[in-house]
């Protein structure tokens, strides 16, 4: 179990560092710091507590991963960070997310997630495809729940979460989520010679 979680953390680390490098380039070199990825295996009832009862507004970009291994990926930012990032991308100074800001975030989320998937693909030699991305601005719980419903979670879910922040004095943090399907996770473990999991 611990070995499995270690392995998942490592996957998260490799995927997310490729993703944030791509993001950093788009931000003209703004440095992004990755917090050590967390890998968790949660039961369905634990997920309720994990999602929480808070009504925090977030921006979420969602991409479905298909191909040799399937999964679900999301880039989730607290609303203030979403506004900051949108302003950085559009050279704007808005206090709310505009339509242009939203499409900039969608694009950046797409690039970040696609880089993550490419890193996984290079690591495993598996053919992995990202779906068309989409963005939603809503209560955090509603965004999470929609992703979990779409993943049709049964009894247990494996979740790899990487948090990033910036060392500079701006409000910018977010999460990159990778939720492999059971079969998708088994496939990745198998090609990396980790069948004992």
């Amino acid at each position: 179990m611990d070995a499995k979680l270690d392995f998942l953390r490592e996957l998260g680390n490799i995927g997310a560092s490729h993703g944030t490098t791509a993001l950093s380039k788009m931000l003209h070199g703004e440095r992004l710091t990755l917090v050590v990825p967390e890998a968790e295996m949660l039961s369905f009832s634990e997920l309720g507590n994990f999602i929480g009862e808070t009504e925090e507004i977030v921006a979420g970009v969602y991409v479905r991963m298909t191909g040799d291994a399937e999964g679900h990926m999301a880039f989730i930012l607290p609303y203030p960070s979403a506004v900051t990032l949108a302003n950085m991308l559009t050279m704007g100074s808005d206090t709310e997310l505009t339509e242009i800001g939203k499409s900039a975030l969608l694009e950046v989320g797409n690039i970040l997630i696609t880089s993550y998937i490419n890193a996984l693909s290079a690591l495993t030699n598996l053919t992995l495809y990202p779906s068309v991305p989409d963005i939603a601005i809503d209560i955090s719980a509603a965004i999470w729940q929609s992703i979990l419903v779409n993943a049709e979670i049964a009894d247990q879910v494996t979740l790899i979460k990487t948090i990033f922040t910036t060392p500079n004095k701006i409000e910018l943090s977010g999460r990159i989520i990778f939720l492999p399907t059971e079969a998708g996770f088994a496939k990745i473990a198998e090609v990396l010679g980790l069948e004992e999991f």
């Binding site: 999602i51 719980a141 999470w144």
Partner: peptide, 25 residues
């Protein structure tokens, strides 16, 4: 009383049953 994903809760006489963040649920 909060009602999380997959839960059922019942109250009698008074109180509030709440669920936060219904997306596709």
């Amino acid at each position: 009383v909060f009602v999380n994903m997959g839960q059922i809760r019942v109250l009698q006489t008074s109180g509030i049953l709440t669920t936060v963040g219904l997306g596709s649920c």
